[in-house]
Design a protein around this nucleic acid. Structure first.
Length: 423
RNA sequence: GGAGAGGUGGCAGAGUGGUCGAUUGCGCGUGCUUGGAAAGCACGUGUAGGCGCAAGCCUACCGGGGGUUCGAAUCCCCCCCUCUCCGCCA
């Protein structure tokens, strides 16, 4: 959600943002609704004011006196008018809200121009894709893969895209999670184990509702949503709260399974572990003071990157262009790991600054010590990291001629042995 | 799941239809007092929205939503949450 005042005072900034993100939002329609809403609000408030004045007057009158009864009659008309106008106002307010939700967040000045993913800027590349396994294969074709990751059984038990992890597969997943969490805690994030179902209010605050409803699994009869990312419960932790400025920045990390319906995405890009309906992920999240927001984003990205570095996986950092930025983000980096068997980059982390966009919806503020007034915090998050694609990259990049997978030194203490076996 | 009791400002806690955005106490802030402090005294102390150059004015908010009424913190309905007891249970 954008600041309504920004819309009124600087519509040109919003217009530029819409253009830079290559969106279709109709700013003029929103401005028209805003004007109408304010006009209606004034009308209702004037009537309410009359009611309150009459109320004070009537309190002083003797109940049942002719003056009193006359006033009652008089105010009946006002009461009816208030009801009618309030109904109208409520209707306009709903349209106003819906309209405001179509206004995207402003991209940061450092976001490059561009319409499609091809226009994303390669910000940095680490490691050498050429320096990976000479016998690399797509992970789903590796001999014995199905003994570690069982898709058919998962499909039988639950549905497509819900694989079982077995033996060294389950163990590698657990080792990665543990490694990620430990490293993140060392980097200063407090570990949190959040609920993995959230209510509609939480899903709305972080932007999954109303428009991305179909991407979440919803439970009946309680209408709870399985989290698509730990970002949702984590961000909502402080919903409707005013934080002490001394607390900032608050840095947290959490492991949750993530559930995504991903309706309609099929094809070669989603083979194997590339895209599944349930996967494990560790999320990094910060609530920060607006003044340090972009420094904190760089740190968050560096923290996520250090995980890939310790796993000795080649990766690149993309700075997303305006058109590929996303509706709610001000700036976003994607980390993509090299998968030597598929010969392609796989996104394993997306580090975004939302500035006040989420904080306004979720009403997360801090008290400015200078003014004593509450102000919105900035929120940002990034994966640190998503497990299945890192899992896939490890299998593909580190495949040995003997059919085993050599694990990076940093992971050995967690995995308990140097080689993963498909037996 | 069943029965009962509750949910009011930072906290405690009044308020059962009108002058209540809300008594009071604590806390907090400013000032007076003091050698300094405490105590005492005085004043102040929520959030959001609209209008206005501003000073300021207006409106809303007593867990959430609806209703009754000229008028709702107060009455009615639905929902959520907390506590106590019972049941069930890892």
């Amino acid at each position: 959600m954008l600041d309504p005042k920004l819309l009124r005072d600087s519509p040109e900034l919003v217009r530029a943002a819409i253009a830079k993100k290559h969106l279709d939002a109709d700013l003029d329609a929103v401005l028209a609704i805003d004007t109408a809403w304010r006009a209606q609000l004034t009308e209702v408030e004037t009537l309410r004011s009359q009611q309150k004045a009459a109320n004070t007057e009537m309190a002083a009158l003797k109940k049942g006196s002719p003056e009193f009864l006359a006033k009652v009659q008089e105010m009946k008309a006002v009461s009816a008018a208030v009801k009618a106008k309030e109904d109208g106002l409520k209707e306009v307010e709903e349209r106003w809200n819906a309209a405001m939700l179509t206004m995207p967040n402003l991209p940061h000045a450092s976001v490059p121009e561009g319409r499609t993913p091809d226009n994303n800027v390669v910000h940095a590349t680490f490691g050498d894709p050429a320096n990976t396994s000479p016998v690399a294969q797509p992970h789903w074709e590796i001999n014995g893969f199905e003994r570690l990751v069982d898709f058919p059984r998962g499909a039988k038990v639950t549905g497509a895209g819900f694989p079982f992890l077995i033996g060294d597969g389950a163990k590698l997943s657990r080792a990665l999670l543990q490694f990620f969490l430990d490293e993140n805690v060392k980097a200063g994030y407090t570990e949190v184990s959040p609920p993995i179902f959230v209510n509609a209010a939480s899903a709305t605050a972080t932007g999954q509702l109303p428009d991305k409803e179909g991407q979440m699994y919803e439970t009946t009869p309680d209408r709870l949503y399985a989290v698509p990312t730990a970002e949702v419960p984590l961000t909502n932790f402080y919903r409707n709260e005013i934080l002490d400025v001394e607390m900032l920045p608050v840095c947290r990390c959490a492991h949750t399974p993530c559930f995504r319906r991903e309706a309609g995405s099929y094809g070669k890009d989603v083979r194997g572990l590339n895209r599944v309906h349930q996967f494990d992920k560790v999320e990094l999240l910060k609530w920060v003071h607006p003044s340090s927001s972009y420094d904190e984003l760089e740190k968050l990205r560096a923290d996520a990157e250090s995980l890939l570095q310790k796993l000795e996986l080649p990766y690149r950092v993309l700075l997303m262009c305006g058109g590929d930025l996303g509706f709610a983000q001000s700036k976003k980096y994607d980390l993509e790991v090299w998968a030597a068997g598929q010969k392609r980059w796989l996104e394993v982390s997306s580090c975004s600054n939302f500035e006040t966009f989420q904080a306004r919806r979720a009403q997360i503020r801090f008290r400015n010590p200078e003014t004593g007034k509450p102000e919105l915090v900035h929120t940002m998050n990034g994966s640190g990291l998503a497990v299945p694609r890192v899992f896939a990259a490890l299998l593909e990049n580190n495949l040995q001629p003997d059919g085993r997978v050599k694990l990076p030194a940093a992971l050995v203490p967690y995995f308990g042995k140097e080689y993963l076996s498909f037996k």
